[in-house]
Design a binder for these strands. Structure first.
Lengths: 164, 164
DNA sequence: CCTAGTTGGTTGTATCTACAACCAGTTCTA
DNA sequence: TAGAACTGGTTGTAGATACAACCAACTAGG
């Protein structure tokens, strides 16, 4: 088995991508933690709920959208529930299932923390790029996702924002 | 304070980037954990040592290259040391400092796990991209890093691979 | 029906990371 | 040259995640 090693160009791109993946989550996390007492993952969960009809989703649906295991989500939602940001109630259609709904306090939390989060994303990522680069980044990440998520279980989420 | 919300193009790129950041670490981690009983971070530490003269670096230097806090690194190296992959010894120049050196077993571990790791990187990322896209990705991540790491403390690492 | 297998979700435990406290050695400064 | 401040590193502990085990509810096949 001969290994196909990476050339200079590939290595440069790869090492930078790894570095971004290391630094970016920390930046997002600490801004949200500082300004809203939320982790980035917490925020994502609340944001998903806030965009859904009745601000309600089944646990499985949230897990799929956020890419979390059900176990992880269960722990996280439990914490959000004790903080009064989310409430859980059994699903009428399927009595195995649990619905998670954003409370009024949770809705308020999303509304007040969204601007700061968006500003952070702009400052650290999008504003550093030209419009062409934003388009390129979209295409590149799309290609990568076709490998990372071949059966497209996460695709529903990001395809929503595609141009018509 | 009017929030500048993201347009469709930006949102598409951003959501995809977040999804990649969520999925990719897990893919790298589980391949290495399965095939070499190492986390991606463990691997990175060993790889840094393997590329250094005498396969030795000071703890601070490793921390800087991997982007870890010294505390985290200390724990990780402790585990690697009990597994016999790394050894620590006091630095002669500065008696506060500690050197970490790759053992023969550690060197062997890097040699045998590198091909599988590179193959994973190819399959899930690089082989999904055209050569132009690899170049674009390099430029895009470089631009992002100028915001994430403005004083360039991580830059030394990835600049090493730049074309002359 | 009734049983095997699947799906939805929770809980317990082991592991890892972050944070703060801490110690030892070094440098700066008056 | 003593003391203050800083640097390099380790350790303890609390919080978060992964993994496996588990239970309850649904579904399909005989």
């Amino acid at each position: 088995m001969d290994t196909r090693w990476l050339d200079r160009q590939q290595l440069g791109a790869w090492v930078r991508l790894v570095t971004v993946m290391e630094l970016l989550p920390g930046v997002l996390d600490s801004q949200l933690r500082r300004d809203a007492q939320l982790t980035h993952f917490d925020y994502y969960v609340l944001a998903m709920l806030s965009e859904s009809p009745e601000r309600t989703l089944r646990m499985t649906a949230v897990a799929q959208r956020t890419g979390a295991t059900l176990a992880r989500l269960s722990h996280v939602v439990q914490r959000l529930e004790t903080r009064g940001l989310v409430e859980r109630f059994p699903c009428a259609d399927d009595r195995r299932a649990t619905n998670a709904r954003l409370t009024e306090a949770g809705w308020e939390k999303v509304r007040e923390s969204a601007p700061g989060h968006v500003e952070t994303v702009r400052q650290h990522v999008l504003d550093a790029l030209t419009p062409e680069q934003v388009t390129q980044l979209r295409d590149i990440t799309d290609a990568i996702l076709s490998r990372l998520d071949p059966d497209g279980s996460r695709a529903a989420l990001y395809r929503r924002y595609d141009a018509d």
